[in-house]
Nucleic acid binder design. Structure first.
Lengths: 208, 208
DNA sequence: TAAGCTATGTGATATTTGTCACTGTTTCGT
DNA sequence: ACGAAACAGTGACAAATATCACATAGCTTA
């Protein structure tokens, strides 16, 4: 049991809290592409990423989507938390970005712990701050940047997330995350290739 | 002093907390148009709106802006709170939307109270949720809606905020809040007038 | 009262992004 | 091995929004 709780590399979470997490939660493995939270579904668990990453998106009825932020190891989905405490359906969709190991905490536990464990409360608060700033960045990019800048920044974000200059992604996936058309992405990537900023191959983009 | 704390119509804030607010804070009156928080300035106080309203915007170096959300009576600016606890400069600008009476709380008090007063912690948390959802709405509108829909929704928001069908606003102000061009707003409003959805006069829009 | 400033409306054009249609290549499944 | 599906690239065109220039009307100030 001690071995297991060592898996939890969350800053500022004390051992007692980690114990609680392990005892209350269930560890599950997911593959890239798995949808672990569907929009408009009720939230039963709070996912804490042990390894890997998730992406959180907003989608419209007609299928259009927009990326909000990524969830890395040591983080959770505050939108799930939000949905849980207001007993509402999820307003976002969470998709596994890289193969992941996730600890699923029953949502009522996550809520109860806020008043019971200061380190948990602090953890949730800090994640709220982080996500809030990330949403501000999304608003900023959409309001003030052209689509070509947004593509470049999205590639940089993916590079940071995986730590690799080789990004496994399709043009369609990038288009989905940016809320634009696949052809727009293909054209802009081709231009970036001409400018020797990236190298393209099928299902893969290499940042130079 | 008891008369004063009665001014604070914040749900779920107990009397002891209200007492603290009144003792620690300073009440000030502001006029519509006053800027009470400039982007890139350090945050010293947390503004709680007693009467009136504020609008919070993001601005770009070249002067372009975008409206994030309104702050009504009984609410505060979580971005100020965020900036205060991370000892950072403000990432937003706050402008008085309607003549307002505001209670200014020293930021260090606001921070200390989170662990000291459960009702304050709850208040801040709930406002975070609210703002988070509002930012999601902004992202949604920008990603999935055309500018004409966004103008209509902005007018509806202003109507809700003031409780009046007569909205005192210029085309330029709407353009600033939406991050678009003044001519675009004038044209769309003119069309809405032709469709008998609004009535236009200088500095005023009446929703029919 | 008149000049100056602000707000609004309009025409024309430019830019950016989106859509449609299609082709070619690569990968996957039977 | 072959056909289907997915992915990528490209041309042409459409739609939405932005920009520029300018005129007119309303309001403020001297």
């Amino acid at each position: 049991m001690i071995n297991d709780s060592a898996k939890i590399s969350i800053p500022n979470i004390d051992n007692e809290m980690k114990q609680q997490l392990m005892e209350s939660g269930t560890i599950k493995n997911f593959k890239a592409g798995d949808v672990i939270l569907q929009e408009n579904s009720y939230i039963k668990t709070l996912p804490i990423v042990l390894q890997g990453s998730l992406k959180v998106l907003r989608e419209e009825e007609d299928g259009k989507e927009i990326l909000l932020y990524y969830i890395k190891a040591g983080e959770t989905c505050v939108m799930s938390f939000l949905g849980g405490i207001s007993n509402d359906k999820s307003k976002v969709k969470a998709v596994v970005e890289e193969d992941s190991e996730i600890l699923l905490i029953p949502i009522h536990n996550a809520q109860d712990w806020v008043s019971k464990y200061p380190s948990w409360c602090d953890f949730i608060f800090k994640l709220y701050h982080k996500r809030f700033e990330e949403l501000l960045s999304v608003v900023n990019a959409m309001a003030f940047q052209k689509i070509d800048q947004r593509i470049v920044e999205l590639l940089q974000k993916k590079q940071q997330l995986t730590g690799s200059k080789e990004i496994n992604v399709t043009h369609q996936q990038l288009a989905d995350e940016l809320g634009t058309a696949r052809e727009v992405v293909s054209r802009l990537l081709k231009q970036l290739e001409r400018e020797k900023k990236i190298a393209l191959s099928r299902n893969k983009i290499t940042i130079l």
